[in-house]
Design a protein around this nucleic acid. Structure first.
Lengths: 137, 137
DNA sequence: CCTGTAATTCGTAATCATTACGATTACTTA
DNA sequence: TAAGTAATCGTAATGATTACGAATTACAGG
């Protein structure tokens, strides 16, 4: 997702255009991998020294709720990254060392043969974990 | 997994047979669904009033590390349940209301077509979330 | 361009789950 | 049953996240 798309979503929901949100979005636009809240904080400190925890966590939650950020969890750590372009549903390989990802175009839901007709499906998660070529060296 | 199998694993790794571990294992043997640490604590309090946080969390970690318990995360909550019998690899539908599960026998790793030969795969996760028939009513 | 107002942010404190610690107790083996 | 080690207890410390009142900022309307 581009920053423009993110801002369009935010403004549509009556969130205001602020410097901090811009710094946060620009950061996620550039890194394009899963990062921790602490990593966000350290990076953002350079553009706005003294930025508050409140501001970071509150906006991460807003972005995540609006689908601007994608959130997952690995070894008890919360990770965030910019949501992929919404043109096609897919999943990810995630590097446990650096957070970089690789797309997995297929979706396992297509292959599920179990009858879940009595169940109400809210969502699903498919992720492959490991080390990317660069981190193996 | 049965309690006997769990104890066999524990003793093989030189963990001792204690009353608290027995209480914990018996609880997981009976509930057979995903529960939070707090739910464990409340249930176990009845068999051993005043049991320490340390004891619960330490043993949950031991059980999880030895593969006796299966651990996952849902909406920021850590969930534990007795590991399934190890006879066949499979995945789960998980009820977001009560923690009950239903087995999904197929594994998405069989269908992945992306070339990951340069990657070192450490693991994967496939879970379907929703509400089970009983919780829909 | 001003002003009013409501959202946002700041700085810090509070909360919550989890982990750590020193003292005590319990298990195992001989 | 005694020694040696692991496990537990009770509580304190930790670390990530959330909450709060005061100050600041963005934006709409005059």
């Amino acid at each position: 997702m581009t920053m423009d798309e993110a801002w369009k979503i935010l403004l549509k929901h009556d969130y205001k255009r602020t410097k901090n949100r811009d710094i946060l979005l620009r950061f996620f636009d550039q890194v394009d991998r899963y990062v921790t809240a602490m990593e966000v904080r350290n990076a953002v400190e350079q553009d706005n020294p003294g930025i508050s925890f409140d501001t970071i966590y509150r906006n991460l939650a807003v972005f995540s709720r609006l689908g601007i950020l994608d959130e997952t969890e690995l070894n008890g750590e919360r990770l965030f990254r910019m949501q992929c372009a919404s043109d096609s549903h897919h999943h990810h390989f995630i590097c446990t060392t650096c957070g970089n990802t690789k797309s997995i175009p297929s979706c396992p839901m297509d292959q599920v043969t179990v009858n879940l007709s009595d169940y109400e499906i809210e969502g699903h998660k498919f992720e492959i974990y490991g080390r990317c070529p660069r981190c193996i060296e």
